[in-house]
């Protein structure tokens, strides 16, 4: 038996890879756009969170 038979056995199997690809592309694009538009003051603040805690010697 060839593997193609399993594929054909699933109703609407062609939708699976499409859904997954769409989900990923949408998600990734949204993250990219939002990250680029993020407020740089906030970004700078977050960057320095670990360093602000340096124990004072």
């Amino acid at each position: 038996m060839k593997f193609i038979n399993y594929l054909q056995g699933i109703t609407g199997v062609s939708i699976y890879p499409m859904i997954s690809l769409l989900l990923f592309v949408t998600f990734f694009s949204v993250v990219m756009v939002m990250v680029i538009r993020a407020d740089s003051g906030f970004i700078d603040h977050m960057k320095n969170v670990p360093l602000d805690n340096e124990p004072k010697d």
Binding site: F27, F28, V31, V35, I36, A38, I43, K47, L51
Partner: peptide
């Protein structure tokens, strides 16, 4: 956490880290 600590300078790009996290786990 520890690379910025040991180098005593902030992470190169916080924006990149956001993209890094979500795309990696996805």
């Amino acid at each position: 956490y520890f690379v910025p600590k040991a180098a005593n300078r902030p992470i190169y790009s916080y924006r990149l880290s956001i993209v890094h996290f979500w795309s990696l786990i996805f």
